[in-house]
Computed example of a mutant assay.
Amino acid sequence: MSSTKFILGCFDDPDNMMHGIENLQKNSIPIYDVYTPMPIHGIEAKLGVKESRLGYAAFCFGCLGGSVIFSILYYTLVHDWPMNVGGKPHFAMPNFVPFTFEWTILFAAFGMVFTFYAATHLFPGRAPRVMDLRATDDRFVIAVDAKGNVPHDDITRLLQEAGAVEVKHNERKYVSYE
């Protein structure tokens, strides 16, 4: 058994890369991931990437933030230290709205950042790991898991037919910048 973990097809044109994805999918070869230096319209649908659930996390964190500040304001201004300001009632809802709104946005924003870092393992200070260093510069890379049942020569041939400039066999999972 070979030590190759990934077969990388490097393309210099996004249209050729999309054609390479189609070739691999026609032959039922699973694609591990695609790396591009810029966003490509429609690639998520072609690869079958599920829609992000960050919106649900934002909603939950926003509800948490709104509940926390509303509870703090209610306890502080109604129970702990009620003040009579201009004859208004202690529990005047319009006074609570700006603080509740701001804390809802604050909790949602920070919660989404932490959730994104946790989901993608992109914590600050962590060394970036990429398949090919040129994928962030000028190349479009299709990574195919080489542990499948398809012979490596067939995958290489399909990538070259699609217009791959270079086809590499990676033995390590990632290339580090260090």
Rank of each mutant, 00 (worst) to 15 (best):
K26R: 14
A118E: 08
H121Y: 12
G125L: 04
K173R: 11
M93E: 09
D12A: 04
G125C: 04
R129W: 06
D132Q: 01
C10M: 10
V113M: 14
D132S: 04
K147Q: 12
K173V: 15
I31G: 00
V165N: 08
P14S: 10
I155L: 01
R129I: 11
V68A: 03
R134Q: 15
K5D: 09
Y177W: 15
F140W: 09
M112D: 11
S2E: 14
V97N: 03
M131F: 12
Y174L: 06
V165C: 07
P128G: 06
R134K: 15
L106T: 03
A146K: 00
K5G: 07
V150C: 06
P94L: 04
A164Q: 01
N95A: 13
D33C: 09
F123H: 06
A164I: 03
F70L: 11
S176A: 13
L24N: 03
H90D: 13
Y177T: 13
H90Q: 12
R126I: 15
K46V: 10
L47M: 05
P82W: 06
I69Y: 02
D132E: 09
A135W: 00
I72M: 10
A135H: 02
R53M: 10
S67W: 02
N95S: 14
T115V: 15
F99Q: 05
V167Y: 01
K50W: 07
N16W: 07
N16F: 10
F114G: 14
M17L: 15
P124C: 08
V85F: 04
L133G: 09
A92P: 04
E51R: 14
C10E: 03
A92I: 10
V85Q: 02
T136S: 12
P82A: 10
C63H: 05
L8F: 03
M18D: 08
G9T: 02
H79I: 15
E171H: 08
T115C: 12
A135V: 07
S28M: 09
V175A: 07
R53L: 14
A58H: 05
G62I: 05
P39R: 01
G9W: 00
I105R: 00
G125T: 06
G65N: 07
N170G: 09
G48Y: 08
P94V: 06
T76L: 13
K26P: 05
V113C: 12
V85S: 01
W81T: 12
C63E: 05
M83V: 15
E171G: 06
D132V: 08
F114P: 09
V175S: 08
I105K: 00
N95G: 09
I69N: 00
Y74I: 08
F110C: 15
H19N: 14
I31Y: 01
A119I: 14
T104F: 02
L158I: 05
M38P: 01
E44V: 05
M93D: 06
R172D: 13
